[in-house]
Design a protein around this nucleic acid. Sequence first.
RNA 1: GUGCCAGUAGCUCAGCUGGAUAGAGCAACGGACUUCUAAUCCGUCGGUCGGGUGUUCGAAUCAUCUCUGGCACGCCA
Length: 564
Amino acid sequence: MNNIFDKIREQIFNVVQNAFKACEQKGTLPHVQISDMSVEVPRERNFGDFSTNVAMQVSKQTKLPPRKTAELLSGEFDFTGTYIERTEIAGPGFINFYLSRDWLYDCVRIIQEKRERYGEVDLGKGMKVNVEFVSANPTGPLHMGNARGGALGDCLASVLKKAGYDVTKEFYINDAGNQIEKFGMSLEARYLQLVLGEDKVEFPEDGYHGEDIIEHAKAYFSQHGDSLMDKPSEERRRILVDYALPINIQRIRDILSAYGIEYDVWFSEKTLHDNGDVKRVVDYLTEKGYTLEKDGAIWLNGEKLGLEKDEVLIRNTGVPTYMAADIAYHYNKLVTRGFDLAIDLWGADHHGHVARMKAAITPFGLKKEQLEIVLFQLVRLFRNGELARMSKRTGKAIALEDLLEEVGRDAARFFFNLKSAGSHLDFDLDLAVKQSNDNPVFYVQYAHARICSMLRKLAEEGIRGKPVQEVDLTLLKEKEEIELMRKLSEYPEEIALSAKTLEPSRLTRYVMEVAAGFHSFYNACRVKGEEEELMMARLILVDCTRIVIRNILELIKIEAPEKM
RNA sequence: GUGCCAGUAGCUCAGCUGGAUAGAGCAACGGACUUCUAAUCCGUCGGUCGGGUGUUCGAAUCAUCUCUGGCACGCCA
């Protein structure tokens, strides 16, 4: 048993179920089917350690007021072999369970035994999951949307791993299609401007206007001179793209790596075109009657898939659209490579694509649920209380690179993981760099450093912890100690919930609560200088706290400093 | 115009598969360092959960209408 919550839920469920049976035998209650019985930690401490709503849930079946049902059940409760000491009926019919503190001490023992593996749950049961995130166009620098998506995706992948999923992290390189055409066009125009003079060559209106395009052209020119001038335009563009694209991709890899993100797979869109997958997928859809021809193009039949409108798959020029490639890509993930589930993180501006993408995989015998899209809202940066659009350094739109330089990796990752994906994020640049009490990053890191410092100080005096089996944990009974143990006990639950809801941000908020619990404990209780037995018990508790904080910081890839 | 997301304390946000008196941080105010790190802690103040109606034992949570903000509606991705 590594999740104390599961154990307690099981105990409470059994106690309740046996009570129902006893009532049924006595004839005081009819036979009931227990469904939707919740066992939760109540909001208020004086409502007990755990509480269930079962009496309310079955009120329709018992045809009795919930409180009455609760009373009848309570009369039959048998707590033998459980943590439960007593119960109370409260409110509209809640049954509140008051537990012996042994459950907390057992939890401490679990943490001591599991160490860095504490928090693992087997929700995924080895299910193969592909988490795809960032997947930025390799035609320019990474922006704030990529930064948020990166932090969320990376942490989600870590959480899913911890929850027992077999996770693959993936970056989809959009190295084919329209934007690459534009990239080539833009590079060519800059190159020609360089050779012929800026005013001699007009820059395409819908080209990429960024400084980086000019830099690529300059760099190529300085290495190869005007050798491209006697080549046909098409070849010239291809050569320039072949030159600049790998540089951009490498740059993206480097910045993401500095951001703490390492992918398992870098998947090239181009390979899907080159090996015929895109064509095959469209042909299959056509064969099965999911496409129609209109104006010389091949469209995905919206009506047949329950969509609002049709979508072009193959343009009348014969060139496939992004949609066609995306279908082939998801086919590749879910069929060719056999992932049970694909999770994509997209900026909220792509929400219109969600329904069609999920629908588009169904003709292949896949279920819509096998593709989960996590949408995240866009980011606004604030500096000096004002909307910050531009980088201090470059005067251009703020890139991930600029953000890392300004606030650092820890703050960036922490802040992007603080708010749920669905809420708009206002990122306070000043707060993120502030080394003070209102910066949550430091708050958590400080708790960890403080613990390490305590352990160091004790070690200097030759005091070291004992194995938990030799320690009397029942000495931990101060309010702050109890609260801290409770908080630590929730960790596996938090992992499970984060994984279920695909919301890694709750873990960031949770670790702040752990840190708060520790700081309160620290101010209320001493370790060093206390009587030996108590000191040893508290040492265990402090060590458990260190384990959990470090565990989570590692998971969200934020440094856990031993000194501050 | 249609669709999606959001609207909760002065600010930033949790809570949303219906549950008890709606929470946290920041800000404001008042306290706590001769003792393991005060980057900390303790306390006070702060709310018509955008508004209306409905569903029910019970609604911040579900339905519906409405207001406000963001986004999307392309042979772009």
